[in-house]
Design a protein around this nucleic acid. Structure first.
Lengths: 111, 111
DNA sequence: ATAATATACATCGAATTTCGAGGTATGTCA
DNA sequence: TGACATACCTCGAAATTCGATGTATATTAT
């Protein structure tokens, strides 16, 4: 049904992660898993296209950096525009979440 | 990324509505809109296929009833099996919601 | 009386989102 | 040297929702 645009919460999660620090893809998957207590297991086939989309929109900026061991990593940085997007999507999530809970709380006690 | 099965919360909303009383399709759309403070605007093209699916699964049972004005309506009743499904999906939603909030709360203050 | 609107059901193709499977390459460890 | 983890990527398939469209009946306005 989705309110206006989308309940595409995956991008929201990525933006939230990047608001703390620059990160690379593989790292995001791991962070999401720990921070969500193993509820989220985002797949690479989901994440990479999202990152590319956010980059195209100007919400993130990518740069290559070498890890201490010599491996090449692609870090993503949240732009000012991305911060705005995060704010918007966060509010959308809160409205969505509030609405689901409102419907649920009027449901009869399934424990 | 979805935890195990699905974040298909639409069925959850329908099941929650039916836990209170039997309802017909058109009524559900209206109830969802008011109970969610206009956040949800479920479309008929979304709802009817879901109802048919839930019926095939045995979560709801349909019956025809004539409205006081003579119009024919198709009411849906939540079965015992449907109550079990509601319970399961409710728990899934709670885990999902908790996880999103956990990631968000560790994000930097976007107001 | 008639036209417009609201109610009420339904289906179908298109768009969006996510996954699963597969591919490439490099670093580490047995 | 082979196995495994890290790290990036793409593509087709599956799932979900919407928009459009169709049918039919009741209500309201003209």
């Amino acid at each position: 049904m989705r309110q206006k645009k989308t309940v595409e919460h995956t991008a929201l999660l990525v933006l939230a992660l990047l608001s703390r620090e620059d990160m690379y893809g593989y790292q995001m998957i791991a962070r999401l898993e720990e921070q969500s207590d193993h509820t989220f297991e985002m797949k690479e086939g989901t994440l990479y296209p999202i990152l590319h989309g956010l980059e195209k929109e100007g919400a993130v900026r990518a740069y290559l950096m070498e890890a201490p061991n010599g491996r090449q990593r692609k870090y993503y940085h949240l732009t000012e525009q991305g911060k705005g997007l995060l704010q918007t999507e966060k509010e959308e999530w809160q409205a969505y979440s509030r609405a689901v809970n409102a419907v649920l709380s009027s449901a009869l006690g399934t424990a």
